[in-house]
Each structure stands twice: as C-alpha cells, then as structure tokens.
Design a protein around this nucleic acid. Sequence first.
DNA 1: TCAAGTATTAATGTCGCAAAAGATACGTCA
DNA 2: TGACGTATCTTTTGCGACATTAATACTTGA
Lengths: 310, 310
Amino acid sequence: MMRTRSNTRQNHLKLARRIIEVALERGMNRGDHLPETTLSEACGVSRTPIRSALKLLESNDIVLRREEGGYFLNHSPEEIGINGISRLDDMEGSLAARILSDRAERRITDVQSVSALVRRYNVPRSAVLNALKILSIDGVVAQLPGRAWAFQPLLDTPNALAESLSFRLALEPQAITAPGFDMDSQKAGLLRQQMEDFLRRRDGSMSSVEFLHLDCAFHSLIAESSGNRFVCGALLAHQRLRLTTQKDHSIPDFRLRQSLEEHLDILDSLERMQHQLAADQMVLHLRRSQIRKPQAVNRGLLPLARKGMA
Amino acid sequence: MMRTRSNTRQNHLKLARRIIEVALERGMNRGDHLPETTLSEACGVSRTPIRSALKLLESNDIVLRREEGGYFLNHSPEEIGINGISRLDDMEGSLAARILSDRAERRITDVQSVSALVRRYNVPRSAVLNALKILSIDGVVAQLPGRAWAFQPLLDTPNALAESLSFRLALEPQAITAPGFDMDSQKAGLLRQQMEDFLRRRDGSMSSVEFLHLDCAFHSLIAESSGNRFVCGALLAHQRLRLTTQKDHSIPDFRLRQSLEEHLDILDSLERMQHQLAADQMVLHLRRSQIRKPQAVNRGLLPLARKGMA
DNA sequence: TCAAGTATTAATGTCGCAAAAGATACGTCA
DNA sequence: TGACGTATCTTTTGCGACATTAATACTTGA
C-alpha cells in the first residue's frame, strides 16, 4: 500500500496553478521559456518548490523540459486557459471533493466530527484533517466549539443564491466606483481573450463548469482592482466559495452567452474609464443573473406546458 | 511558569464568554441559577466543558458555587456587562496579543516565518502555532505559500480606517433593508441598556476600549439580524477584526457620546419597524465616524487656532 | 422529574522523532 | 551576466504514542 506521506502534493499543485496563472498573465506563448528565477520571484517562494511544481506540470504535459535545460510552455494560452487548470483541479484534494459532493447532495449533515468522517470514508485521520483544512480555507466549513465542524451555507439552494447576489449587489458596484479602482490591463486583456474564445466556439456544448470558472475569474478581477482591501477580501472569499460550492448546471445556454457579453461590455466601459457606467452595468448584470433563477426552477414544467398548448 | 497546555484554556475561555453572553441574553440577574444542562444546550457542547468554563468563571469571581450544588451569578448584568468580559479577554492568548501589539507598532514586518517568531519570543513552537491560529481566526494573519505568514491590513492607519468605513457603508444599510431583517429584541434591549448605562456614568473618563466593545457589539447585532448569511458573515468578520486591531484612542469624548446616541436612535427606528429610516441613519452615523478622522488628526492645531481668534 | 455528580468511553490535542520541503550558496555552461 | 544544476543546511510537516478533554450513560439527591 505504501502509505507514506499521502498528502504531499497539495502545495505543489497550488504552485503549479499559480505558475500557469503567472505565465498567462505575462502573455507567454507556446514554446516560451519559463525561467525558474522569474517564477520564484513572482510566486514568492524559492526555486526548489518551483522546480517540483514544474515537474508536476511536465507530467501533466503542460510544460516541456528540453535537453539543453529549462522548462518551456507546451501549449498555447487558449489550450491551457481553462483546460489545463481544471485538469489540475481534478486530481486535487480528492477527499475534500468527496466530502463536498456528499454534503451538496445532503448525504451528510451540516455538523460533523473528524472521527465520524474518518469512519465514513475509511481514510487516515490526517487525511480528513487535511481535507477540512482545505475546505476551511475556502470558507466551506468552520470549527465550532467542542469537536464539531459545521458546514457553512452552500451556494446550492435558491435562497442562498439570492442572498449571494444581493451581497454582491451591495459590494461589486461599490468596488468599481471606489476611488482607488485600478485594473491590471494585462489580466483584463487575457480574461477578455478567454471570454471571447469561449463565445466563439459555441458548438452548442457550453460547459457550465468552464463558464463558472470564467465568471468567477471576471468578478475576482473586479474585486482585486478595487482599491479597498476589505471589499476586495470579502469579494474574493465569496468568489472562492462560489467556485467550490456552486453546482448549478441549469443555466440556459443563451444566458451564459449574454452573461459573458455583459462582462465584455463592462470591461469596455472600464477601459474607457467610465466607472459609473460600468457600475450600473454591473448592477444590471447581477440583477439579470438573479431573475434567471425562477425561470430555471420552472424549467421542468413550463416547456411541457407550452408544448401542450402549442 | 506552569506552561502546560497553553491552548487548553482557549476553549474554556471562549466558552466562558459565551456563557456570560447567554446569561445576559436571557435577562438573568445576580443570584440567578445557571443550570448546566441549559447552558450546554445553548452553547452546543456537552456538560463537561461547561463545567470547566464555570470553574473558570468561579475563579474570576463572576459566578459563585453554592454548597447545595450548582453555580449562580455573582454580579448584576451591569457589572458583568463589559467589565467581566474584558477581564477574561485580558488573560487570553497573551502571545497572540504580544505579537499583535508588536505588529501594530511596526516592530515586526508583515511577513514572518514561524521559526522567526519562535526565536523572537523564545517560546515553544507550539505556542507560536497556537497564537497564529488564534490570529488567523480573526483574519489578522494568513498563511502564504512557502513558509511565510503574512499580516493582513490592520485597522490602524487612516487609509485602512477609511476603507473599512466605506466597506461598512456598502453593507450595513443593505443589511438593515434586507427583506429578512429580524432583530432579537432580547439582545437589542440588553445592548440598549448597556449603552444607556455607559452614557449615564459620564464622569469625564469614557474608556475608549469599552466604547469599542459596545460599538462592535451594536454593529455585530445589526449584522446578525440581517437575513442575509453572507452579509452577516462578512460584517461579523469585519467587526472581529476591528475589535482585535483597531487601537484608535483619539476619539474625542463628545463623539463617543454622539455615536452612542446615534446607535440608540437607530434602535428606536428599528423597533418602530422603520427600516429605511434606520438605514439612512446608519449611513449618516458611518459618515460621521468617517469625517471625525480628519478632525481628530487636526485636533492639536484647530483648537489653538480658534483660541487665538477668540 | 429535573439537575448535579460520577464513571466510562470516544475523540482530540500534544510531544518527539524522522522525513520532506524550502531557502541558500556555489559551481557550471551558454 | 543570467540561468540551470547540485549540494547543504534550516525549517516545516507527517506520524505515532500518550496525555487530556468531551460526550454519554448512569447514579444520586431534592
């Protein structure tokens, strides 16, 4: 079984994602060189972990190691964009993912003890602790007094979604109109490109998961650009929560497209320095997402009813 | 030095505070009986830790143990209100407090490794880890990749304060006007009483610390009453941060009074179910706190100038 | 019958050791 | 000079044994 150090790769995975992020931000392309030193500075760690992460990326075929030394990007940004990152995501924290999906489907209650989880999943105690640590970073679980861990509200009920949108309605326009608002145009450009790509290849099969990633990335960018550290922190935490727990795959295709186009419009306004306009557009954008819900809930009924009437 | 189990008392201290909170919420008075079972249900833990916490409270003279069995409140709510709680606070997490004050005075930089702290304070490694854990719950520090811990922005610079107020301006009125807003009238009544007491004994020496506690308690109550779990969570976390890191003792006396009176006005409006009015008053209240700052900064100059003109 | 006391069992925190990860320094090659 | 490769030292983390704490069941007393 060779159960030595089960939880070893976590950090490297994180770092690997960060490396991809940095590479994309700097507008690198297929075949470009990835200098270890640069990455180590950008990520704020020494070269040693960078090398491990690069090895990991190599085994995932995202970077290539050349004979003469050094690592090189093996794919174009478009190919990596979402695909590569989500490929890495999948292998990460499998226990955390299992726990989360069991929670999402209400197979486990909202208060759990570590040992109960150990028994349920039949894994070593440390694995559970780690999974809980991962989940608590994203704010999915929290430690209660005594020995109970409680799941926080997940973004998987209509009510929670409504509250989430109302929360964001209060903060996101504020973030945009804040005096210190300043958007990184590199990042904005990259994101714009990814969204346009996504819109272009509309062969009917728009992936909800990819959309969610893009959506969160966009709103996170807005958050980061706000000059207000508290607004930024709260919004980023919320987007992390969305990314982890929002499992709504019932968004109609046209709304995905519309939503991305609204993102692009907002980016346009921001580039023209029309912050107030952008904030108003954001309000509109969030409100539209809000009213989509009731439609989605009725989707199983209304079309049938219409069919019967036709 | 008796340095056994530094973290042992943490939980009990928390529980002790919670017990006081519960007792006050239930409108108990001096001499009232504190049944273990009731408390254990209210706090969501078994009777065993409740007993430890009660022992702790007994050693702090807040509760009394009678011969015939059982614990009883030893003071009136007024006496306990802030005094008792802050007395407990003081003995808590001393290392965390030291680290925090060193940080507040910029004696240590914003990125630290655990070992650096172990060396600096000459305490066992576990103590540092514990302190960091405490601080990270309040959002004061966060773990970076690699082995670095970074301090989050503290509420001790004019900029940070301004951003904090602007953050709260976005959320608190929203919390009040949220459709699910519902305030616990017990808690509101207790808080009102405490604020009135505080105003009444105005022997010139208004304690800034006590004021901060009251202020945070009021705004936390607003947060809790909001029907929106995300708004509530973000605001509560922010109030915790204020309580831990806001060390501004330069608030002029008249502003403290004015501030508390504004709190009372808001509570009045809320009791009359005039939520919109309360929200507007909250905006005004926060804005007033905001403009106080420049005055406070100039306090050394303006009065002199006026004097000269008079 | 309810609350406090007591005992038992299950779960968690703590400590030391060994192993892995990270930082740093130096050597080498273009 | 800049970047990679290698080596070494420091710091951190994982893990198991053991101490401590919490939950639970049961007993006792008003």
